[in-house]
Design a protein around this nucleic acid. Structure first.
Lengths: 123, 123
DNA sequence: CGGCATCCCCGAGGATACTG
DNA sequence: CAGTATCCTCGGGGATGCCG
């Protein structure tokens, strides 16, 4: 018997979900999939704090990104429920982006990861 | 001026590091790079809890992985300081893997991410 | 048993040009 | 201003075979 059926995490019984090694890995992989696009984290951190930016402002904030990638990554984040996209039917067109409440609530978990990485033993 | 120079996180002054949008994104990207190999999280969750497994036990615990990928991912995790690799000079050879203390201490942060993903608004 | 070497494929992402 | 559309490159990862 392998240990793939072991429980992970420190959930008090009957309160949180329990995970096997596989389901926990799958869950985190899904989260990483939402974040691993080459520019998604840069976009995310530029929108943290309740900020609203238009397409061209994001382009200027992220100098090396192409229009194609900015569009693509924003659309994926919108599909994932992290980013809210608002189109104003004007001429010239205006499109604004800001984080959903759920997207904004990711901040503390990323902070936790950053603090973990700061604790890495030197070498 | 763009907002790329804003501070991120809720650190009390003079205690934790402060991040700009770029440096925070870079930090999290480095963490994701440590975790995003196709099998690394599965390996990680199989080793959480202070377990020690040999190469062949990991192979059996992760049925679809190839030897090449198992070796490669383990070596990268070893380089990153997450996994400890121990070779026993015996015949037949024996190699055991377990998490470093630092690797083990990643568990709560991944739990935080899982709990975040569980809060996703239904569609 | 626990690898390493080689070949190959596919998709993420860059460069460039065009558009409502 | 805010996108599409096309073409192309590069490297992650699979399959297979050999080795101390």
């Amino acid at each position: 018997m392998t240990r793939t059926d072991q429980k992970v995490g420190n959930a008090p019984p009957g309160e949180k979900r329990e995970y096997t090694a596989e389901s926990a890995a799958a869950g985190v992989e899904e989260i990483i999939r939402m974040l691993e696009g080459k520019w998604k984290l840069t976009i995310l951190f530029n929108l943290f704090g309740g900020q609203t930016l238009r397409f061209s402002e994001l382009e200027r904030a992220i100098p090396d990104i192409s229009q194609k990638m900015l569009t693509q990554q924003l659309r994926q984040m919108e599909k994932d429920g992290i980013v809210q996209r608002t189109v104003f039917p004007e001429v010239p067109p205006r499109v604004e982006y800001h984080l959903t409440d759920w997207g904004q609530s990711l901040c503390p978990s990323l902070d936790a990861l950053l603090q973990w990485s700061e604790k890495k033993p030197h070498t």
